[in-house]
Each structure stands twice: as structure tokens, then as C-alpha cells.
Design a protein around this nucleic acid. Structure first.
Length: 584
RNA sequence: UCCGGGGUCGUCCAAUGGCAGGACAACGGCCUUUGGAGCCGUCGAUCCUGGUUCGAGUCCAGGCCCCGGAGCCA
């Protein structure tokens, strides 16, 4: 294990273990099954899970499904898939808060018997009115002092379905003058005649989060209930229910949420973006949903690494905004070590190698290197060159790449009038074709409008493989594909969904929608070496010098579709940008 | 306005009264058959004002600023 991470939560847990408050560690991730998980959830999952792991403890996956109006089984499946994909193991501890409804009900009855809860007939509007404000205390409900017997009877009748939605609630009897508004006799149960995704029509009263959550944690023997900062104000209530009931009492600790620049991170906005047609769905590769990131080509390792690197806000428990560059660095770092390299040309420019032809009868067999079983130049003017699959990982091996008289190179890799520091191909200049030969550009062919449509070059047969026997150097190595052997594929070039780091940075009256990046998806047809034929969706590659790409599920046997996960660092782009800004 | 939480490099996170450190970004260099990767270096911060202390980012007081809170959501 690397350096033991430390943060205020782990510190508190260490102290709890030392003091004997707890003798083990047991955490949980409690999503409500009402939305797709996003990378913010990944942080919560990872904090809970990694802490359990480090302390040799247990981790539960629990669905907090106490509101039948918003929850659906579809989300349960999607969430399970996402959490599993992240690489988190909950063993056999997959639970549902709704499975505890009977116990929850019994505890509510117990609180009624203790005079700590009462049935209230106030309407939702009246409840709001009597709750007071931050500066003004609330006023007590006229039903606050009903007898235990009456409360018991009413609560039973609520369960029996005798009252319509909203007619009554069960409330905790705490303090209507508390400066913490959550303590002003909060609602514990509400009436909802609705079908529950798991319980069906068994219940028509449902516990509120504040009542249900501490009970769920208690039932499962959770030691440390790690949740996000917005629950800080809820902690006194969490503790109150547990104390009144006198049951096993986990400790709630809050951590800061993180957002990421150039992204939005809420269910509501995901729905707006999908509904407005700005993205294709909840798994659009531009969305920070786990499903979207997965489709984009992100690895679970990269996301876990990101969660570790952003850490847990310690004493500075303030919501942080992490730069997207950090996320991108994490995925590059992982993919660099694992992704197979392949050559693809996004914006093809044809190059004819005028002195390359069938070497049939021209090339004596004696020129073949020892052990080589086939001629390096075949009758149809094709030869197969060795290319390394991953320079970071020798065990990834090599492959053969076809080379011929007509190839494509990247249009960006040629300049008729090269600026300073541009090392690639230009008239009269020599570059290396990766794993192939040195070529020199002799002629630029243009169409009637003056557009460059073809380059005519010569190659140096002595440089086969990429080294010149005479020791001469070239300043650039460019990628290429053989024109007749390469295949066509669709590439979806993704960029940040929002142009500004903060999507909410808009003039008064504006909307984050205004900050949508019109270039967040650019679709192109590229040419790619034939080794990728048959690649399964989800397969990740590095397109040399361009970036990391992942096969999309939209692919068909006839036509592959690739998503660009992230570009490579592009030093030349930076230089070019610097020159442009310098000349302004 | 009341309650709760909080302000450390551009960003995220450390420093548990004792040399303010790391990562990402930026910048410069080395290296390179990916202008990739790697390696080396540079830049760069304790919100303000007092106080306690041999010594304060850390403790105390006052101020300023930011976040959360008035769902029968979670």
C-alpha cells in the first residue's frame, strides 16, 4: 500500500478506535434510486469504501428508498451496475431501506408511547406558516398535546389507509423555538397512497429521510455514517432519534462535495440537457454521469485515482471546484500505461510516394534480413512493418502495419509555409513516418481553388523501420495509414460541455445553457489502420499523437465508432497558441 | 437578520504550537522513432487587525467575506 492517506475523517475514526467508542469500522453508500450516479457520487462511494477497506472493515450498498413518488427499479439496476463498475465490492450486503419499514414503524410507535411523537392534522401550508423563520420561532401545533392513546390510534389508522395524502403527519415532539429549524417538530411520516418500486402497495405511509436514515444505519451496525456537508444541520436530529430510542448509535461525519469545472453536476440539469436535446442521453459521453464517463472511455481506475487525489476536505469543509484538468490527467495517466497504440488519421491528406512501387524483380532476395520468410516488398507494392503496441508495456507486443505507395497523413502535419518551430512536413523537408521510412516532400498538388489535395514525396528505402544508416536526423515523426488498406471509421471528438469553467457564469437573466460549448461534439470520418477491425465496444486505444479513443456501442460490424476520451498533451498546439497571442 | 459550517499557491489537498509541503495547471530545460511518456527546474499562498507565546496557518478577541438551513425531497 502507498502512503496511508490521512484526513480529518480517518483521524476521527482512528480516535474512535483508540478510545473504544467503536471496535471496528463499517460504512455504507446510501443512494436514492431516483437518478443516475455521477462522479460526485463516486467521491462519496470511494470515501466510504476506501475507508472501510483501509480499516479492515465492511461496506454496505443500501438503497435509501423511502419516497415512492420519485424512485424506480430502473435506477436500482443502473446504480448497481455503476457501483460495481467502479470496482467496489459490497459482498452480500446489498440492502434496501424499505425492507426496514416494519421496524421503522415500530420505532415510531415507541416514540409515540414515550410522548416524543404526535399525529398532526395541520395542512402542508399551515405547517410552513407555523414553522417560523430563521429569526422567528415557530408556534406549536394545536395537535401537539394529543394523548398517547389518540396518537397511537390515529397513527394506526394512517397506516391502515383511512386518510388521504397530506391529511396528517407524524411529527417528532422536539422544540418549536429551536434555532435549528430542522428541530422544530420535524415530520417523521407522511401519507402517500402510491406504489413503491419494491414494497408495492403494502404501505401508504412513508418515513422521511431524517427519521429513516439513522434507523437504517443503526440496524445495519454502521459505525461511521459518512455523508455530504448539507447534512451537517441534520446531525442533531440524527442523534436525537437514536438517543430517544436508545438504540445502537452510529456516528455521522460530513465531508465536502466537489464539483468540476466546465461541468454541471445535478440530476435536474442532466434532465434538462437530455430533454432539450443538448446531449443524447444520461450516458452521453459529455456528461459526468458514471454511465457517460464509462462510454467516453474513462476507466474505473482513473476515477478512483481522481477521487483519491481530490481528497477529503478536512478542516476547510467548503464545497470545492476541482479543475477538469486533474480528471483528464488521471485518465491519461492510466490509459498511457494500458491502452494499445494504433495509427489513425483524422483529417486525411493524400501522399503519393513516387519512387515506391512494386519491387518485384528489382529487389534481390539477398536483401532480406536473415530469418525473414517473406519478401519485405510484395508484388502489389505492399509491405508489413513492425509497430510497437505500447512503448510503456513491452509485454503488449508488436503488430504488423501495411505500408504502400499511397498513404494518408494528417493535414495538420503539413505546412506549405511552415512557421518557426514547426518541425513537420513542408516542401523540401524530410520527416519520419512512424515505424516506416523517411520521406521528403517534392511537390504540392492543388485543385482549381488552390486547396492542397495531394503531396508527392520520395522515400529513402535505406531508412526502413525509421533509422537512417548514415545517422542523419529528422526533427519530426508523423503518423500515417496506408490509403488502400486503412478502413473508414466514425470518430466523435468530445470537448468540454461548457465553454466557461463555471457554467453559471452568465449575465443577469442568463442561463447555464448559454454557456454550452457548441464544439463539445465534432463528428468526423477518419482513416485507421486495419488492426482495429472487429474491436468490441469499450475497447480503448491510443491513436498515436492524437489522444485516447474508445469503441462506442453504436459501432456496427461494418463501421466502427470511436469516442475521444481525451486528447494527448499537445505541446505544439501550446506553442502555436502562444505565437498567436504574442502577435496580437 | 437568526443558527450551523468555513476562509492556506491559479485549482485541489497537507502541515495535529516548531523550516508552510505535495498534486494538477503555468513557465523553462533535458530526453525522445508519439511535439506522447519520462526526467530536472522555476513561479506561486496562510482574508484583515489586534492579543497570548521563545515561537501562531494552528490558540484567543474583533472585523470582513463565502457556503448551508424555513419540502409532507434525499
Amino acid at each position: 500500500m502507498k502512503d496511508q492517506p490521512t484526513d480529518f475523517i480517518r483521524e476521527i475514526i482512528r480516535q474512535d478506535l483508540e478510545s473504544g467508542r467503536f471496535d471496528h469500522v463499517h460504512t455504507r453508500f446510501p443512494p436514492e434510486p431516483n437518478a443516475y450516479l455521477h462522479i460526485g457520487h463516486a467521491k462519496a462511494i470511494w470515501i466510504n469504501y476506501s475507508i472501510a477497506q483501509e480499516f479492515g472493515g465492511l461496506f454496505n450498498l443500501r438503497f435509501d428508498d423511502t419516497n415512492p413518488m420519485t424512485e424506480e427499479a430502473e435506477y436500482v439496476d443502473a446504480i448497481i451496475e455503476d457501483v460495481r463498475w467502479l470496482g467496489v465490492d459490497w459482498g452480500d450486503r446489498l440492502f434496501f431501506g424499505s425492507d426496514y419499514f416494519e421496524q421503522t414503524y415500530q420505532w415510531a410507535v415507541e416514540l409515540i408511547k414515550k410522548g416524543k411523537a404526535y399525529v398532526c392534522d395541520l395542512s402542508p401550508e399551515e405547517l410552513i406558516e407555523t414553522r417560523g423563520t430563521p429569526t422567528r420561532p415557530g408556534i406549536e401545533s394545536p395537535y401537539r398535546n394529543r394523548s398517547v392513546e389518540e396518537n397511537l390510534e390515529l397513527f394506526e389508522r394512517m397506516r391502515a389507509g383511512e386518510f388521504p395524502d397530506g391529511a396528517r403527519t407524524l411529527r417528532a415532539k422536539i422544540d418549536m423555538a429551536s434555532p435549528n429549524i430542522l428541530m422544530r417538530d420535524p415530520v417523521m411520516y407522511r401519507i402517500r397512497h402510491a406504489s413503491h418500486h419494491r414494497q408495492g402497495n403494502k404501505w401508504c405511509i412513508y418515513p422521511m429521510y431524517d427519521f429513516a436514515h439513522p434507523l437504517q444505519d443503526s440496524i445495519e451496525g454502521i459505525t461511521h455514517s459518512l455523508c455530504s456537508l448539507e447534512y451537517e444541520n441534520h446531525r442533531p436530529l440524527y442523534d436525537w432519534f437514536l438517543d430517544q430510542l436508545g438504540i445502537y448509535h452510529p456516528r455521522q461525519i460530513e465531508f465536502a462535495r466537489s464539483s468540476i469545472t466546465h461541468m454541471v453536476m445535478s440530476k435536474r440539469r442532466f434532465i434538462e440537457l437530455v430533454g432539450g436535446g443538448y446531449v443524447s442521453g444520461m450516458d452521453d459521453p459529455r456528461l459526468p454521469t458514471l454511465a457517460g464517463l464509462r462510454r467516453r472511455g474513462y476507466t474505473p481506475e482513473a476515477i478512483r485515482e481522481f477521487c483519491s487525489r481530490i481528497g477529503v476536505a478536512g478542516k476547510s469543509k467548503v464545497e470545492s471546484t476541482v479543475q477538469i484538468a486533474l480528471l483528464e490527467d488521471c485518465v491519461r495517466d492510466d490509459l498511457n500505461k494500458t491502452a494499445s497504440r494504433v495509427m489513425a488519421v483524422l483529417d486525411p491528406l493524400k501522399v503519393v510516394i513516387t519512387n515506391y512501387r512494386s519491387h518485384d524483380n528489382e529487389e534481390p532476395a539477398s536483401k532480406l534480413s536473415p530469418g525473414e520468410s517473406t519478401p519485405s516488398h510484395t508484388q502489389d507494392g505492399v509491405e508489413y512493418l513492425d509497430a510497437v503496441n505500447n512503448p510503456e508495456d513491452p509485454s503488449a507486443g508488436t503488430r504488423k502495419v501495411p505500408f504502400s505507395r499511397e498513404i494518408y497523413i494528417e493535414r495538420d502535419d503539413f505546412r506549405e509555409d511552415p512557421p518557426p518551430k514547426f518541425y513537420r512536413l513542408a516542401p523540401g523537408r524530410e520527416v519520419r513516418l512512424r515505424y516506416a521510412y523517411f520521406i521528403r516532400c517534392n511537390e504540392v498538388v492543388k485543385d482549381a481553388d488552390g486547396n492542397i489535395i495531394e503531396l508527392r514525396c520520395t522515400y529513402d528505402p535505406a531508412t526502413r523501420g525509421g533509422d537512417a544508416p548514415d545517422g542523419r536526423k529528422v526533427k519530426a515523426t508523423i503518423h500515417w495509414v496506408s490509403a488502400p488498406h486503412s478502413i473508414e471509421a466514425e470518430v466523435r471528438l468530445y470537448d468540454h460541455l461548457f465553454s466557461k469553467p463555471d457554467p453559471d457564469d452568465v449575465p443577469p437573466g442568463g442561463s447555464y445553457i448559454d454557456n454550452l460549448n457548441p464544439q463539445s461534439l465534432v463528428t468526423k470520418t477518419c482513416r485507421i489502420e486495419p488492426s482495429v477491425i472487429g474491436a468490441a465496444p469499450g475497447t480503448r486505444y491510443q491513436f498515436e499523437r492524437l489522444g485516447y479513443f474508445c469503441v462506442d456501442p453504436d459501432s456496427t460490424p461494418e463501421r466502427l465508432v470511436f469516442n475521444r476520451t481525451v486528447t494527448l498533451r499537445d505541446t505544439w498546439a501550446k506553442i502555436e497558441k502562444g505565437m498567436k497571442e504574442g502577435s496580437k
